[in-house]
Design a protein around this nucleic acid. Structure first.
Lengths: 207, 207
DNA sequence: CTATGTGAATTTATTCACAGCA
DNA sequence: TGCTGTGAATAAATTCACATAG
């Protein structure tokens, strides 16, 4: 099935599979089955197998998948086989939490720079990273940073994104509650916490 | 088209439309068109109209939508017309950021309780909310809290969810990087920041 | 003449059922 | 026999084109 277009939903799920695999490794499991992964992650086994099938034959029939090999394959697909440097813009409450977040490491993602406009914060060290002036964003190009996280207020989000794009970043994760316009070659993923929370009541049964 | 099953994707988008409408209101706009909303939110106009069509005729042909009326309708659909109380469990870096987050208010969501296991934190006030012992989660039932946010480490996330469900909560937003099992009547939405970031490199063009 | 509302066409994604291989 | 890999069937979501109402 190698020659198909890859569904976007498949790409969305691959990091989840990776999470399961990293956990299996931690547990010392050398093998996993699609069923085992599925149970752990709360998805269906055939969904997992179908998703893998777009990229190749990663498993052994009758046996399952070798944890280490499958981990490597998925990392390669997601381009996580090489390390990535990430820049954070906006060291407020959320930004600080992101800086302190340990979870990026297992995916080879390192927050290598942090920026803020507040002169009282600039020069301080948070989570091992020295906060710089936002006007220094342009230095990211030569520092080989290719991903960015935006955690600034809504009204400066677009301006921030523009600066990051100008500095050559190719992917942006934004926590700002607004749509961000970028050139087609740049990928933006938005996490709006309030909007996800606001969706919950719909599912609450009338009492 | 009133009698159809509502696509889940439609429900996912409704709060985004609401965000656009709240912004229009702020700007003092009494009317919006599907095109105007679409431009602002980065979606297509026909998607918006189709989504609305599942619930009724909210607009006026040749004119557009009255901002205030449409806002009310969407709030009603999402059950955001009545206020909701939210409990937060885990007042670490991320939890504190969530407590300080102002964005929930516009959707009628109020963080009315916060819990942690750390005795040094219990009793302290963060973001206007007094931190309580996690063992007090059971009091949420009589306090009319029906939504919860989980911001605890992975290994205690399931236990926390179990406690919240036992306390009668009907919707949970989890920041813990794991699958959470709950009874079918309870809705869980998971935000895994690392996983969203880990998806970005895939889209970065080879250089 | 303008912008909504929607059936129909199309595209995309999920699920199934089983062939294929260790 | 057991679990993967995948075409085919089904389901879901998006997009289109245009009738419709103000």
């Amino acid at each position: 099935m190698r020659y198909h277009k890859i569904p976007d939903e498949t790409i969305r799920r691959l990091p989840i599979y990776l999470r399961g695999l990293l956990f299996s490794s931690e547990q010392g499991q050398e093998r996993v089955s699609s069923q085992g992964l599925a149970d752990f992650l709360g998805v269906s086994p055939w969904q997992i197998r179908k998703d893998f099938s777009y990229f190749g034959d990663f498993g052994t029939r009758g046996v399952g998948y070798k944890t280490e090999k499958l981990t490597k394959e998925i990392k390669k697909i997601l381009k996580l086989d090489a390390a990535h440097k990430v820049a954070l813009v906006g060291v407020g409450n959320l930004g600080s939490a992101v800086l302190a977040h340990a979870g990026f490491r297992s995916y080879g993602l390192e927050i290598a720079a942090a920026f803020d406009t507040d002169s009282k914060k600039i020069g301080k060290k948070v989570g091992g990273v020295i906060i710089e002036d936002v006007r220094k964003i342009s230095t990211l190009r030569r520092r080989k940073v290719d991903l960015g996280i935006i955690a600034v207020p809504r009204d400066t989000a677009q301006k921030t994104a523009d600066a990051l794009v100008k500095a050559g970043l190719k992917g942006i994760l934004s926590f700002s509650p607004c749509h961000i316009t970028v050139p087609a070659k740049v990928k933006v993923i938005t996490i709006d916490i309030a909007i996800d929370l606001a969706r919950l009541p719909y599912y609450v049964p009338a009492s």
